[in-house]
Design a protein around this nucleic acid. Structure first.
Lengths: 215, 215
DNA sequence: TAAAAAATCCCCATTTAAGGGGATAGCCAC
DNA sequence: GTGGCTATCCCCTTAAATGGGGATTTTTTA
C-alpha cells in the first residue's frame, strides 16, 4: 500500500483525488495539506511514501516544499501537479529533484501510472507537460507577475532592488541604516522565497517574475 | 505644418522637445500627454499627424497605445522614443506597426529627420537603435569612459549563461570540462567587459543588453 | 606569417555570500 | 492573548567570488 499525501490549496482538488482512490488496493490517500508548511510538517512526521504537490501554494512555494522535503526525507517521492500556464517552471522543479509531473486534469490512470513509476525510482513526466515546456520555450515568457514576487515583503523587495543595483551586503546595510546581519537575514529569505541558489538566481527571478515592472 | 503629440511620463522630456521645435516652420508640438490613456484620447479626438511615443508609461504600455491608435487612426504616424535598455523591444514595436524608432537622447536634427520620413510613409529607425538590435548588446551603461565596444566571446557568453542558471564557478568548470581557474578568468573578463561589479551586475547586464536572445 | 585575440591554466590574497543556528520586539489578526 | 509574520540583530562556519598578478597554447585574422 502506497501512502500518499495530497497538497493543494483547493480542497475540491484534494477531495477529487481522494475520491479517485477511495477503494484502491494499492494507493491510499493517507493525508492532505492545504499549505506548504503543513505539507512539510506532515511529510516529515507521518509515514508518507509519495506526495502529489501543487506548485502554487498560499504560503511557501511548491519549489520550497519540494526542496525541504527532499533534504529531510529523500526517500519520499514527489509528483508535481501543474497547470499549463506553469509549465515554464518545470526546469526549475527538475533542479529540486521532483520525481514526476502531471497536469492537474490528469485522470486516475495517469496518476496511478505516475505514482507507480516514481515509487520504483523512475521518473514520470506527462506528455502534455513536456509539450508545454518545449513550446513554451519558444514563445516569450508572459510578463505576468508571479505570486512569488508578491509574497515578498516591502523590505525584501527593497533589498532585492539594491542587490540588482550591484550593492553588496555592507553597502545595503549602510544605505538602509540597518545592521549587515539583518541584510543577510533578508537575503536568506529572498533565496528561500524565490527558490534561488545564489545572487544570480535572485536577479534572474527579479527579471523573470516581473519585479522590475510592478515595483 | 506637422502637428505632433508628445507622450512621456516625464514632463521634463516633453518640455525639452517643445523647446526644440518652439519656432520651427514645419513642426508644431500641438499636444502632450503624460499617460497612455491620455495619449490615445488626444490622438483620436484632436487633429494630430504624428506621435512621439515613450514606451514606458505609467498606465498602459506604449505598445498598447501604438496598437490602439493605429487601429482607430492608421494615418497617424508613430515614432517610438526609447532608451538603450529597451532596444530589444524594437521587433515588438514593428509588430504594432510603429513607423519609427528613436533614442531618447536624439537631437533635434534626428527628430526632424524621423518625423519628415514617417510623414511621407517611410520608416525611420535610428542607427543606434538598430545597432543595438543587431549586435544584441553594446553601449556601456555609463558612457563616461571609453565608448569602445567590446563584444563577448563565445566562451564568455557560454559561461554567462551558466552563471544566470545559478551555476557556481566550480559547477561551470565541471560542466565545460575546464579548470575552475579558467572560469574565474572568464568571469573577470565578463565583469570588465560588462562594467559590472559582481554577479548581480552580470545577470542584470545579460537581461538589459539582451544577451539571452542572441545566444 | 606575424600579430592579435581567445582559451586555457596557476599563484597570491581578500572580500562577499551562503548555510546553520538562535533571539527579541512590534504588529496584526483570529 | 496567542500565534504568525515582519523586521531587527547576533553567533559560527564554510563556500564562493573578486582583485592582482603571470603564463602557455591555440585560433583567428590582418
Amino acid at each position: 500500500m502506497i501512502r500518499v499525501l495530497v497538497v493543494d490549496d483547493h480542497q475540491v482538488l484534494i477531495d477529487g483525488v481522494k475520491a479517485l482512490f477511495e477503494n484502491d488496493a494499492d494507493i491510499n490517500i493517507q493525508a492532505e495539506a492545504l499549505t506548504g508548511k503543513q505539507a512539510v510538517e506532515i511529510a516529515c512526521s507521518d509515514e508518507i511514501d509519495a506526495i502529489l504537490l501543487d506548485i502554487n501554494l498560499p504560503d511557501i512555494s511548491g519549489f520550497e516544499v519540494c526542496k525541504t522535503v527532499k533534504e529531510r526525507k529523500p526517500e519520499i517521492k514527489i509528483i508535481a501537479l501543474t497547470m499549463h500556464s506553469e509549465a515554464g517552471y518545470i526546469s526549475k522543479m527538475i533542479k529540486y529533484k521532483v520525481d514526476g509531473y502531471l497536469l492537474k486534469n490528469a485522470g486516475k490512470e495517469k496518476m496511478f501510472e505516475a505514482i507507480k513509476a516514481v515509487m520504483v525510482g523512475d521518473k514520470f513526466f506527462s506528455k502534455e507537460v513536456t509539450d508545454s515546456l518545449i513550446t513554451g520555450m519558444h514563445q516569450p515568457r508572459k510578463p505576468k507577475t508571479s505570486d512569488f514576487i508578491q509574497k515578498l515583503t516591502k523590505r525584501e523587495k527593497e533589498i532585492l532592488h539594491l542587490i540588482i543595483e550591484e550593492y553588496t551586503t555592507d553597502e545595503i546595510a549602510s544605505e538602509l541604516f540597518i545592521a549587515s546581519t539583518t541584510v543577510i537575514t533578508h537575503r536568506k529569505s529572498l533565496l528561500r522565497k524565490l527558490s534561488a541558489k545564489n545572487t544570480a538566481g535572485l536577479v534572474k527571478a527579479a527579471y523573470e517574475f516581473g519585479l522590475l515592472k510592478s515595483n
